[in-house]
Nucleic acid binder design. Structure first.
Length: 429
RNA sequence: GGGUCGGUGCCCGAGCGGCCAAUGGGAUCUGGCUGUAAACCAGACGGCUUUGCCUACGGGGGUUCAAAUCCCUCCCGGCCCA
């Protein structure tokens, strides 16, 4: 099984500048890079494709470079964005870059024993913030015509719209990314850039720059953008429509596991291919299970287990499974205290005074203070709509109900749930 | 700098002096059916001490019994001109 066959099976390739680059990657010994935007202090599931690509590259004997966009982040990529984005300040950006570096370092092999395929982690702030403006315009800008630049699909909608514009700052972004490729080529012999299909324009700008400056031909591979069945980019969690972060303190392993477990049937085969390292046979078998026994959701389970294991480790994946089993099977009141705590370990929790709880707390108050409702009005609605559960038992739809210790498990715990999957653990101190 | 059009709730977008917490669509949320999916159906969707009150229609000021709606001014954006 070589890389070309594997990537084709998995559907990882959308476009290439030169199809034969896949054969050279299969042979190993190439250096390829992917850039990561430091728009937040953590990467999220939307970047998982890219992370996996670098890893696949490395597993096939090539050298991966993960490039943190500490410099490009100062500008902001306008590609396919429908509005100008607010600039991040340098401090926040530096913190974000640090967070991302730390995460990337976990997914690739940076040890000397990796030899020629030892991974590299760089930050483009190192060269983008030090080059002088005039040097940049003479050495980089001179190689581009505005005519080509405005023809790019990625910025076209912004140029055509009559309600928003495109600032020169964002417009310049593609030159910075092109310069990255040039530097990586010159300094690290990098001859390949990968990215999502929305990056095609930026990447080929780099390919052209390298050719014009050095005469060398370097290459681009883009991967398809994965969207959910509803057509939106994936990676936003159900409950809060927040992103699903890779940082366990931002998105618990349990929440991530749940997110993946809820992947719709139609999207599951492509997710298994892009986000896991399961064998082709295993994947085909899981495809089959989606048809023969969809209600078992074996494919979704395999996906969730594989991804959570990859990102948070086996123990976290197992814990997430256990928690899900208990929480959705209504056996929660039978659990002993230790198991109960293990099961809800991932959920947010709060400590309450025993006297207050013994006296009884209005359910609406409880929901707001647990963060499960934004206002008393919203809490009232949830209760009236029958969307609130205590210890997995639905609360009667009366907005005036009070909760007291008589409902508590082990005389201390109240597992409060809103809707299908928003949880909070109340502990009587 | 000049001209012109515009800034409405999470987003898009109606409203253009009282009947407006503001039509409609999308997103989101809850429930139902299922498989903790998808699709579909129903409901909700500023806040509160909820037959009412408060806060909101870019910011500030004004006219009026009454303003998202009129006037002044400032800020921000698009387009055209210089």
């Amino acid at each position: 099984m070589n890389l070309r066959e594997d990537w084709q099976f998995r559907g990882l390739v959308h476009q290439t500048t030169d199809d034969t680059v896949l054969d050279r990657l299969s042979a190993g010994g190439l250096t390829g890079y992917i850039g990561f935007d430091p728009t937040a202090p953590s990467l999220h599931l939307g970047s998982l494709m890219q992370i996996c690509l670098l890893r696949r590259l490395q597993l096939a004997g090539n050298r991966p470079i993960a490039l943190a966009g500490g410099g490009t982040g100062l500008i902001g990529d306008p590609s396919f964005k429908d509005a100008e984005r607010p600039l991040l300040d340098a401090e926040r950006l530096a913190a974000n870059v640090e967070g991302i570096r730390e995460q990337l370092s976990r997914f690739l092999d940076f040890s000397p024993s990796a030899g020629a395929s030892r991974a590299l982690l760089l930050n483009n702030a190192d060269w983008l913030t030090t080059i002088s403006l005039t040097d940049f315009l003479r050495d980089v800008g001179k190689h581009f015509t505005v005519n080509q630049m405005i023809a790019k699909e990625a910025v076209r909608s912004r140029l055509e719209r009559d309600d928003v514009g495109l600032s020169f700052t964002e417009f310049s972004y593609m030159l910075l990314q092109a310069y990255d490729f040039l530097r990586l080529h010159q300094d690290h012999d990098c001859t390949l850039q990968l990215g999502g299909s929305d990056q095609w324009g930026n990447i080929v700008s780099g390919v052209e720059l390298v050719r014009k400056v050095t005469g060398h031909s370097v290459h681009a591979i883009t991967s398809p953008l994965l969207v959910n069945a509803d057509g939106k980019k994936m990676g936003k969690s159900e409950g809060t429509s927040q992103r699903v972060w890779l940082d366990a303190s931002l998105t618990s392993p349990f929440a991530m596991h749940q997110y993946l477990l809820n992947t719709d049937d139609a999207s599951t085969p492509s997710r298994l291919r892009c986000f896991t390292f399961l064998s082709h046979d295993e994947i085909r078998e899981l495809d089959e299970s989606l048809v023969s026994a969809p209600q078992e959701r074996r494919a979704q389970r395999a996906l969730a287990d594989a991804v959570v294991t990859f990102i948070h480790g086996e123990e976290a994946a197992r814990a997430a499974q256990r928690a899900a089993d208990a929480l959705f099977s209504e056996t929660i009141s039978d659990l002993d205290e230790t198991t109960l705590l293990a099961v809800v370990a991932d959920a947010p929790s709060s400590s309450w005074s025993r006297e207050e709880l013994a006296h009884g707390v209005e359910a609406t108050q409880l929901l707001v203070r647990c963060g499960l409702a934004k206002s008393l009005g919203e809490a009232r609605r949830f209760i009236e709509q029958g969307g609130v559960y205590v210890n997995n038992r639905r609360l009667e739809p009366d907005p005036d109900v009070t909760i007291d210790l008589s409902r508590a498990l082990h005389d201390r715990y109240l597992v409060v749930r809103r809707g299908r999957r928003e949880l909070h653990l109340v502990v009587a101190a």
